[in-house]
Nucleic acid binder design. Sequence first.
DNA 1: ACCTGAACACCGTTCAAGT
DNA 2: ACCTGAACACCGTTCAAGT
Lengths: 189, 189
Amino acid sequence: MCAAPAKTSDADIVAAARAVIAARGLDALSLQQVAAAVGIKTPSLYKRFDDRAALLAAVQDDVLLELARVLGDAAASGSTPQDGLHAMGRSYRAFAATHARLYPLLFGSSEPSPAARAAIAPVMTALIALLGAPLALPAARTLTAFLHGFVTMELSGNFQMGGSIDDAFDFGLDAVMRGIGAHIMRTVS
Amino acid sequence: MCAAPAKTSDADIVAAARAVIAARGLDALSLQQVAAAVGIKTPSLYKRFDDRAALLAAVQDDVLLELARVLGDAAASGSTPQDGLHAMGRSYRAFAATHARLYPLLFGSSEPSPAARAAIAPVMTALIALLGAPLALPAARTLTAFLHGFVTMELSGNFQMGGSIDDAFDFGLDAVMRGIGAHIMRTVS
DNA sequence: ACCTGAACACCGTTCAAGT
DNA sequence: ACCTGAACACCGTTCAAGT
């Protein structure tokens, strides 16, 4: 029933694709390189992944799961929800810097994935503890929008007016955290 | 000296490329389509633009100049710097929604362009008036990071947890504005 | 069941040749 | 000066054929 033994595996292919993207960027990824890296020919990839987009989605999941672990660790490192959120914000930026060429992949596709849910879960948990359920969702969107926007612009070189980008991030993270907190103060009073 | 009269112009080519991207998206753009739209053959494009990237940069400039005008109008519509900034934030999101498939082009390249400077100029002016020069730069980066991140995630369909995205944007813009203001209050006191 | 060679329709880009 | 035909080196994808 198995005349041709498998030369590789789904996980090997994902790892090879991830390595190519990490080294040369998403645009430079070709299925030929991935196939060659795992020792098969290009058409064989289609036995395991529907198309290029499906392979990229698998790599995206792989990276998102790693991000979820990093953010979970950061959340656990804080003694208060505020501390945890601050640590997650800093870890997020550090993760993006470490995986600069992988990062654009994270927001490429739009289908809801368990990996994406896992990545935002610790943020939601901390915000629910801090602000309560009704405000946690818009607050999470505000925080993730800031983090994603900042990191994207930083990695793309879009901060071109000089000054310290580290300082801008610290300023911005503080401002967003305070803005979120100020809002609950005002609506509660 | 001019044996072959020009069938088209740089501006025509940029307009055609912009129209294709607006209709079908950046990934679907091919130089063949652009050339056909202006009535020439593909290789002729290389007499006017170095390569595909140069053409995209020209389209990016075209869109950025339009954005600069929209933001300038919004800034002028506010009677206070705060009002102007709020209006710019809302106009920015509206601009992105109207030009959804063009928007990803704006943050693609990283070379500093006069058009990009023109687009952020009204934001910087309002923030200098509001916070003073030293804080204006990190505040501008915080605000633009939030706006760009929010709009990117919204357009990519990355807000997948239900709830009103309009409400989240209003909440977030208020929070960021308040966070920026709160910071100056604290450092000034 | 997994892999491959060959083919298809497309890309961006170059360049000698036309007018 | 501007345009074109032909060619080049690449893509992603399909499919019949091998084992």
